[in-house]
């Protein structure tokens, strides 16, 4: 039984160029409802850009994005992004607002909640990530791990159908990585649909349901973690794994 109302996300034949740089060259990605897909690959392979295209922070030049089987490219992109939570490498909390206000901003302005309702919801979300006692602190007074958990709470408060994680632990001190990964693993077990761009091979292997290996703007291999990590078929994946493991 899932704790979340999650959706199925499909990207079909996504193309994108920045000038003459063809960053995404026909990417296909299918994330079944309630599952976690991790996307791995070397820096500059287009992983983070793919996430931004799938929630239309960047519009694709070609291809389609489907949520629960329906194309979302004609929808209002702002409304699409309310259905997809996103967590960033650099946390991107709002430094001029308190932890609770970071969460209530969207609840009040986009979900139309009253101040009290929003505060209550924010505290509930903070409780889930173990940071209710920090509700009135400023982000700058939190550790990186705490900030990232607030960022996750901020995204979850919008009751997204899918969660994106863009190298969510890459900017953290090593001792803080575990807490954030554990929280992400809990979400995955709770039935959230997740797309996780990561350099954490342990997470990719143990928590995700599917793994997609990208290099130079294409999907080189994808399948179960077992398949990719124990029997890589391509030289590129073999080389990548021997570099990172």
């Amino acid at each position: 039984m899932s704790e979340f109302v999650s959706g199925t996300l499909t990207a079909k034949n996504i193309h994108l160029s920045f000038g003459s740089n063809h960053v995404l060259r026909g990417i296909d990605l299918h994330v079944e409802k309630g599952t976690t897909a991790s996307v791995i690959g070397p820096s500059g392979s287009g992983k983070s850009t793919l996430l931004r295209v799938m929630n239309r922070l960047i519009e694709p030049e070609q291809g389609d994005i489907l949520l629960d089987g329906r194309s979302v490219l004609k929808d209002n992109p702002d409304e699409l992004r309310r259905r997809i939570g996103m967590v960033f490498q650099q946390f991107n909390l709002f430094p001029h607002k308190t932890v609770a206000e970071n969460i209530t901003l969207a609840l009040r302005k986009l979900r139309g909640m009253s101040k009290e309702q929003a505060r209550e919801e924010a505290l509930a979300q903070l409780d889930l990530v173990g940071l209710k006692h920090k509700a009135d602190a400023r982000p700058a007074n939190l550790s990186g791990g705490q900030q990232q958990r607030v960022a996750i709470a901020r995204a979850l408060a919008m009751k997204p159908e899918v969660m994106f994680f863009d190298e969510a632990t890459s900017a953290l001190d090593p001792e803080l990585v575990k807490g954030v990964l554990a929280l992400m693993a809990d979400l995955a077990k709770g039935g959230m649909t997740m797309v996780v761009v990561t350099h954490e091979m342990g997470f990719s292997r143990n928590v995700s349901d599917t793994v997609t290996f990208m290099d130079a703007g294409i999907v080189v291999e994808s399948g179960s973690p077992e398949q990719l990590f124990t029997e890589p078929r391509t030289e590129r994946l073999k080389g990548f794994l021997s570099d990172v493991l």
């Binding site: 889930l128 990530v129 173990g130 940071l131 700058a140 007074n141 939190l142 550790s143 791990g145 705490q146 958990r149 001792e175 803080l176 575990k178 807490g179 954030v180 990964l181 554990a182 929280l183 992400m184 693993a185 809990d186 077990k189 954490e200 342990g202 997470f203 143990n206 928590v207």
Partner: peptide, 19 residues
């Protein structure tokens, strides 16, 4: 002031995860 605290609650959340 940048008053950072140890991430003591990190261990409490996400128990049971095998990462």
């Amino acid at each position: 002031p940048e008053k950072k605290e140890p991430d003591e609650v990190a261990a409490v959340v996400g128990k049971g995860a095998h990462v």
